[in-house]
Amino acid sequence: MATVKKTGKQKEVLTKDHLITLYMDEVLEKESIPVTVYKFCKTNDVREEEFYSFFGNFDALKEAVWVRFFEHSLDVMQRSAEYETFMVREKVLTFYYTFFEVLTANRSYVMLSLRESKSPLKNLEQLKGLRKEVKAFARDLVKEANDEKQMKLVRNSGTVFSEAIWLQLLFLMKFWMDDASPKFESTDIAIEKSVNTVFDLMDNTALERVLDLGKFLWKEKMA
Rank of each mutant, 00 (worst) to 15 (best):
L124R: 10
L61V: 02
E63W: 02
V76W: 10
H72E: 10
G56C: 09
Q126C: 09
T94Q: 03
L61W: 00
S73I: 13
E116R: 10
L124H: 10
T94G: 03
K118F: 15
E84P: 04
K91Q: 12
R79F: 07
Y52K: 07
Y83A: 00
E50Q: 14
L124S: 12
S108Y: 12
A105W: 02
E101V: 06
Y52M: 09
L112R: 01
F100N: 05
V92C: 00
T94I: 01
S80Y: 07
F69G: 04
T85P: 08
L121Q: 09
S53L: 11
Y97E: 03
G56E: 13
F86N: 15
A64W: 02
F70P: 00
E71S: 05
E116A: 12
F70Q: 02
R79V: 06
P120M: 04
V102Q: 11
R68W: 00
R115Q: 03
L112Q: 00
K91N: 10
Y52N: 05
Q78D: 13
E63A: 02
L127Q: 06
F51T: 08
K118G: 12
L121M: 13
L74Y: 08
A105H: 06
V88G: 06
R79I: 11
F95Y: 05
G56D: 11
R47F: 15
F58C: 02
E49S: 15
F58M: 02
Y109L: 08
L74G: 01
L124K: 15
L61T: 02
V46D: 03
R89Q: 15
Q78R: 15
L121Y: 11
L103H: 02
